[in-house]
Write a protein that binds this DNA or RNA. Structure first.
Lengths: 357, 357
DNA sequence: CTGAAAGCGCTTACAG
DNA sequence: CTGAAAGCGCTTACAG
């Protein structure tokens, strides 16, 4: 372990009088508030001795100037409010982690809230009362709700960016091109000779699902396959849960049916892996009998045997683009709303193979 | 989908003049700042019509009072600073999610930063300049560094709690009883007839590892087993990575050795699952030939076949205890530092069985 | 090189 | 029931 930096020192000093304002602190040092303020802000033209004296007194007392008063004087808060759909799924968390890191690099602190339906107005008000410099949404929310917030942001010129959710009018947004994401999956499978596809968890009427289904259809159409004959689903038989067990359940439903598809496309990696195990339990070999593709390219893709082919979201690229959109708005308040699409990348691993004759 | 709540309304109003202070706002409404302030704070004794007029103007303008000025008047910030070791491992994230939720329920906002070695002083200063009501650490940090921060907190009566890291003098802390966590694992395996144990990733000199090893030893001693004969490890052969692949590598190292142990205890679930697959690849049957126990009881325990026995950290209990410690300190600034230990629970699944004769 | 005064956006006695 | 004035903790011209 390397030598501890200097921030470890002074740990054993005695309890100091708690100083709460520059006024008290200035009295403690024996200087005027003005002078103290200048030292705290690293302004030039101060006597060496004065600077030393003040800095030492700061160490002694642990005094920290009140950032709130500072902001009152017109200083930016350098704070960004982040609204998360959830903090439990790995992709969401990776986005948050990256976002927090990138914002920090640019000097911004992150305020984080998890949104439940109907709370966005209250949460954004709270963020605005804290005078955040920008607001970020990460995930999928009720469309009308976010649209209303974005409208408010635009009428107040509040910098913002919506990550992952398309279709919000007037919003600055960054999102994965999910249409393309599914298209490349189906094209990959078609190239391997597959013509009939089982969908795992890909049902519903959210924008995200609709986009993904339309990507599938467009690939099928381009290769002269009909949707009705090429696509099978069993989602309607279960309550969708998006986890391993759900994937297993779907796999067993497909296994029992006669003439099951040879290729499967999943909503996410969890379902894909559950299904992979389900098919293996039912006696199918993956990938020789059955090919499976996941979505999100999470760490767990490396866990099953064979390792799972999956679509990578480009989380880093997404977040970095979002941060850029944000900074552009902060720099130029009059800039027009923009949408940036991120290209998905198919990560080929061991779970897909050429269809057996 | 249910009817959208009222927060969706007024989304189409025209861009309003941006009002930034109660002064401007009061002028806009045609009342004195005092009166406006009273409405904003729901104070009694106001004319019905006045209240309506102000509230309506707030909707029209989107005006939000500046929380910073408010705090200057002595109001608590109702903000907590959270220092995370990382935002990438599922247990850390689950703690953060729970913490954020529980704090929110109590009316506190969460400021979140990821700490890298040596940055704690700067980060805490920043939090204190934002006048957070408390500071929380989640994870394992350099001991001297956290100790220094805790010392500062105590000399300033700053409410704080350290989650997961024991051994910080004077700290309020909550942590899993890792000694006991390992003890119950070994006792479980001994009860199944195992006498020789392979350790997977359990090496190093962090407090957390030392505690876990001491739990193992204490269980062995109590059952008359000697440490040197009962414990095997291959960690020194690899660079530890705490992931699936590392578990696989360890499994193959154990498989090649003559007379390998029949029971394995892992640092975490990832390593355990990697090893489980590694042993299966090498021709061992789990659990009939080999028993494996993970740690953390993450979702992925349900993924392998057989499903993985693991130790549950009691994350909810941990975080809830931490929040209580925090609130106690906020209510009673003079309260003595306390440490709360959380009892681990062994979740028995399919990866352990009685040792074959 | 240092200090006294004004002002940022609020709330809270104190008047009316 | 409503309003004018003081003050919270800072910084920034403006003096000296």
């Amino acid at each position: 372990m390397s030598t501890p930096p200097s921030s470890f020192s002074s740990s054993q000093r005695k309890p100091a009088t708690r100083i709460r304002s520059t006024a008290e602190f200035a009295k403690y040092v024996g200087l005027a508030r003005t002078t103290v303020s200048r030292v705290l802000n690293d302004q030039p033209g101060l006597k060496e001795a004065t600077v030393t004296k003040v800095k030492q007194a700061m160490e002694e007392t642990g005094f920290t100037p009140n950032a709130y008063a500072l902001h009152l004087k017109g200083k930016k808060t350098a704070t960004v409010g982040i609204c998360m759909e959830n903090l439990l799924t790995p992709p969401a968390v990776r986005k948050l982690a990256r976002l927090q890191q990138k914002l920090k690099e640019r000097g911004f602190s992150s305020l984080i809230e998890v949104l439940t339906p109907g709370t966005s107005k209250e949460v954004c008000r709270h963020f605005l009362s804290l005078r955040v410099d920008a607001i970020v949404f990460v995930g999928h929310f009720i469309e009308e709700e976010i649209a209303a917030r974005v409208n408010e942001f635009n009428s107040q010129s509040t910098p913002h960016v919506v990550i992952d959710q398309l279709g919000i009018p007037g919003a600055n947004s960054v999102a994965l091109d999910r249409v393309k994401g599914m298209k490349i999956v189906i094209e990959h499978l078609i190239a391997l000779g597959h013509t009939r596809f089982g969908l795992l968890g890909l049902s519903g009427s959210t924008r995200s699902i609709i986009d993904r289904l339309s990507g599938i259809e467009s690939a099928l159409t381009e290769h002269g396959l009909s949707k009705s004959e090429s696509i099978l689903t069993h989602d309607s038989k279960f309550i969708r849960k998006n986890d391993f067990d759900y994937g297993r359940a779907l796999a067993s439903a497909f296994s029992c049916a006669k003439n099951p598809p040879t290729a499967y496309v999943a909503l996410n990696d969890e379902i894909a892996i559950g299904a992979l195990h389900g098919f293996q339990d039912a006696g199918f070999k993956v990938p020789s009998d059955i090919s499976i593709v996941g979505f999100n390219n999470q760490d767990i893709c490396l866990m099953p045997k064979p390792v799972l082919t999956s679509v990578d979201q480009g989380i880093e690229e997404t977040v970095d683009a979002a941060v850029n959109l944000l900074l552009d708005q902060i720099d130029r308040p009059s800039i027009k709303p923009r949408t940036k699409m991120i290209e998905p990348i198919l990560i080929e691993r061991g779970s897909c193979a050429r269809r057996k004759k």
